[in-house]
């Protein structure tokens, strides 16, 4: 392919991405050095916003919470996703039905799904989960005001909304595992677990890596889910980085756009560090080609 053709073919997409992403991104970086509010020119304040963000314990808490949530959710979704994908892959005629039901939580908008989810745990809205738990254990759990129960329902909800996509990717990967390899392993007398561990998982390593990448990126961005599920997010320390930015830059009266932008920039740095392995592997691929 000639260079001119390459440029012509990629230009529209590159223009869209650069125009709509880089320009706003530049504005965010600019704001992060300013004291500014919407629709007005800002005044340059140097690193003041960054200092404010880094010395504010709320930011540290948000980072710890978000990274912890990402770790837990990613591990759980990958494991559960693998298990469910294996089971679904073995289904016959029931498969479309089961797959359809499992996809429901993926196609519901996160914020709407989280609302439905919160109703299960809020006795003011019926609280079926509370009701059933109460029947079983006789106890009452403070899902919205106690630290760990609140973290539990947040994690459950994020898993609930992420699981189908991860499961779908793994399922797609499983279908690519060749029958011959599997049968060879069976003849060698490998047990079920051994077959999964030594044959299937290594052959879908790429898929699993991609699932981890996507799930990491998406959980790091958790925001919608917290609106109904964490009314006490600030007080409890269950505020994600994104919710923190929203609260600072859009909601809490002050609309401190400078601080919000500084937090955004810091978050981008964190994300770049996390993405480094993937970036390196793309570069390596490019070098080999």
């Amino acid at each position: 392919m000639r260079r001119r053709e390459f440029v012509a073919l990629t230009l529209p997409s590159v223009l869209v991405m650069f125009g709509f992403m880089l320009v706003p991104l530049y504005r965010t970086v600019e704001w992060s050095f300013e004291r500014v509010s919407y629709g007005q020119a800002g005044t340059f304040v140097g690193l003041q916003n960054y200092l404010a963000a880094l010395t504010e314990p709320r930011f540290g808490r948000a980072v710890v919470f978000t990274v912890g949530l990402t770790l837990v959710v990613t591990v759980v979704t990958i494991c559960l996703g693998y298990l469910i994908a294996t089971l679904v892959n073995g289904l016959g005629r029931m498969r479309p039905l089961v797959l359809g039901i499992l996809l429901v939580s993926y196609v519901i908008p996160h914020v709407v799904g989280a609302v439905s989810f919160s109703w299960l745990f809020d006795s003011n809205f019926g609280g079926v989960a509370n009701f059933l738990l109460g029947r079983l254990t006789g106890g009452d759990v403070l899902w919205f005001t106690d630290l760990w129960p609140n973290r539990l329902i947040i994690a459950l909800n994020v898993i609930w909304s992420m699981l189908p996509f991860v499961m779908l990717m793994i399922l797609a990967g499983l279908q690519g595992v060749s029958r011959e390899t599997l049968e060879a392993a069976q003849i060698d007398g490998a047990g079920t677990l051994g077959r999964h561990w030594h044959v299937i998982i290594p052959s879908i390593r790429g898929v699993l890596g991609f699932a981890v990448l996507i799930s990491t990126m998406d959980v790091l961005r958790t925001f919608d889910n917290l609106i109904p599920l964490a009314p006490q997010a600030v007080g409890l320390g269950n505020e994600s980085i994104m919710l923190y930015i929203y609260n600072v830059a859009f909601r809490e009266g002050a609309e401190d756009l400078g601080l919000g932008s500084a937090i955004s920039v810091l978050t981008i740095l964190i994300i770049l560090v996390l993405l480094y392995p993937s970036i390196r592997s793309i570069l390596k691929e490019a070098k080999e080609a």
Binding site: F6, T10, V14, M17, F20, M21, V23, P24, L25, R27, T28, W31, Y38, G39, M217, L220, R221, F223, I241, M242, I245, Y246, A249, F250, L257, G260, S261, S264, V265, T267, I268, I271, L272, L274, L275, S278, I279, I282, L283, E285, A286, A289
Partner: peptide
């Protein structure tokens, strides 16, 4: 080659951006 790889990396980074870093400026703009 490197141009494609560069574009793909950029795409990956854009995919991972905190949404507010682009959406709040979009609001203003």
């Amino acid at each position: 080659g490197y141009v494609s790889a560069g574009l793909l990396i950029l795409a990956l980074v854009f995919r991972a951006l905190p949404r507010f870093a682009v959406v709040l400026p979009m609001y203003d703009i």
